[in-house]
Computed example of a mutant assay.
Amino acid sequence: MTPFVTTPRIAVFTGLGMEIILAACCLRRNVYTDNMPMNDNSVNMNAQGGNYHHGDLRAALIEEGLAQISNSPAEKVSLRKIARNVGVSATAVYRHFPNKAALLGALCGVGSVKLSDTFRDALSKTPAGIDAFEIMGRTYVRFAIDNPSLFRLMMTKAPRAEVLQPNQAKETGAFAMLSNTLGDVLPKDTPPELQMVKRLQAWSIVHGLSMLILDGQLPDDEKMIAAVVSRSFL
């Protein structure tokens, strides 16, 4: 078949000739994507992992951020690397998190929820009272050891805990849960000022022990942790 026939005003491409022309055009430009409108949530088809679509991009970015800090310090988190691993453009990341600080703040929030959930799980398996308080103390230390970078991030970037507030009844966060559990074992007539001191003592013990272990000054030893996180200061 003749590749094309010529009329006085127009060349009409037929058969094999048309296929050759179309193939040449595709080599020069991508006819499927060159005219695609810019979309901040569009995926990079060449990205690692082969992701095609994210129903909740913000959640996917946070999940990848958590994955990064599970293997390295929070300071090494890279928004561009997160974009590449999730499979989206850097512009898409910046729409949800305009800078690294915004992402780290979101990771802090996730960490606080994880710690609260860990506390609730521990309390659900323990009777109320002094045993519950000690279990929460050990749970705090174990969470820090199991999530070192996230824990450090939470302690440096999260909003200041309302540790000096005498009444934590309306709070539901991790620190409030620890404080309320301590309040259950203190004498009912304990003055508010002394309650505050006891809360500070409890937090200082579990937090200080956590940091000493994370910094390599003490071993990760369950018996030692249980002995330190005890009722001795009550």
Rank of each mutant, 00 (worst) to 15 (best):
L178I: 01
A67E: 04
G65P: 04
D220H: 13
D56C: 03
D121Q: 12
E134R: 08
Q68F: 01
N41P: 01
C26M: 14
S124L: 03
R199P: 01
H54M: 10
G87S: 04
L212R: 13
T7H: 08
Q165P: 00
L22N: 09
P127E: 03
E64P: 02
I135E: 11
Q217L: 13
N46Q: 10
V5H: 14
M154S: 14
T118C: 14
T91R: 12
T118H: 07
I225A: 02
D117N: 15
L234H: 07
V86Y: 03
H53R: 13
S42Y: 06
S124N: 08
L153W: 08
G129M: 07
L153Q: 10
I135W: 00
S230W: 07
L61H: 05
T190G: 09
S204R: 03
S210V: 02
L212Q: 12
S72H: 13
D215K: 08
L22Q: 11
D34H: 06
E222P: 01
P166Q: 07
L22Y: 04
N167K: 04
L22H: 09
L214Q: 04
L107K: 07
S149C: 13
S210H: 01
H96I: 01
Y52I: 14
M38A: 15
N41T: 13
L16G: 09
A102S: 12
M211I: 14
P192M: 09
H96L: 02
H53C: 09
G109Q: 15
P98S: 15
R9Q: 13
L200D: 07
V229G: 12
N46P: 03
I69N: 01
T190C: 14
K188R: 11
M224Y: 11
L115P: 01
P73H: 00
V206I: 10
G50L: 11
T172D: 05
N44Y: 02
P148T: 03
F233E: 09
L123E: 10
N46T: 09
K114R: 15
D220Y: 05
D56E: 05
D184I: 03
M224H: 13
H96K: 05
P73D: 02
D34W: 05
A202V: 08
A226D: 15
G183C: 05
V88K: 01
V141T: 03
S70T: 09
M36E: 15
M154W: 06
A227F: 12
A128W: 02
E19M: 04
V141L: 10
A144W: 05
G173P: 00
K81L: 13
L178F: 05
V163Q: 06
V43R: 02
M196F: 03
L194I: 14
